[in-house]
């Protein structure tokens, strides 16, 4: 491999690695500084669920929620993204909540009579005007509970 090729490979690798880490670090900052605020008086559980998604893409999350606990889920997307849609489903895929019904609200407060395993489906909606370069950005899912 000649010197130019080696230099190119090295710089490109460093550049891409830096871009990747930088994008991830942005998501961490977004989750910590922006999305966590949506939990307000609920204590964040400390878990980290964030990813870079593009218009039209989906993420799923599986979690057990416990009886008699007060929960808030906050789902946030970067400013450059269209609204984030989320649905909460039970094991039989019955939709228990959809934020589409509340103008794509970022949070949902709930409690359970009995502990249940639930699934969250999060989808980045699409802008009405199509673009050659669909928007991409951080989407974070955060859970908070109240301490008794």
């Amino acid at each position: 491999m000649n010197k130019i090729a080696k230099s190119t490979l090295f710089i490109t690798t460093i550049f891409l690695a830096f871009s990747s880490i930088s994008a991830s670090a942005q998501c961490k900052g977004f989750a910590k500084k922006i999305c966590k605020e949506e939990l307000e008086s609920y204590i964040h559980d400390g878990n980290y669920h964030a990813a870079i998604l593009t218009e039209g893409e989906e993420a799923e999350l599986y979690k057990t929620f416990y009886s008699d606990q007060d929960y808030r889920v906050a789902i946030c997307g970067s400013d450059n993204l269209p609204p984030i849609e989320f649905k909460v489903m039970d094991v039989n895929k019955n939709v228990l909540f959809s934020n589409e019904d509340v103008e794509y609200g970022k949070t949902w407060d709930f409690k359970l009579e009995s502990s249940q395993q639930l699934k969250l489906v999060v989808k980045v909606t699409t802008f009405e005007q199509t673009s050659d370069a669909p928007a991409s950005g951080c989407v974070a899912i955060m859970f908070g509970f109240k301490v008794r």
């Binding site: 204590i43 559980d45 400390g46 799923e60 999350l61 599986y62 895929k93 395993q117 699934k119």
Partner: peptide, 22 residues
Amino acid sequence: LQDVKEAEKIFYSLPSPLESAM
């Protein structure tokens, strides 16, 4: 709960240590 077609990102969320203690 899983669909045949998978989403771009799947999170499996366990109770955090804080939630377990609570």
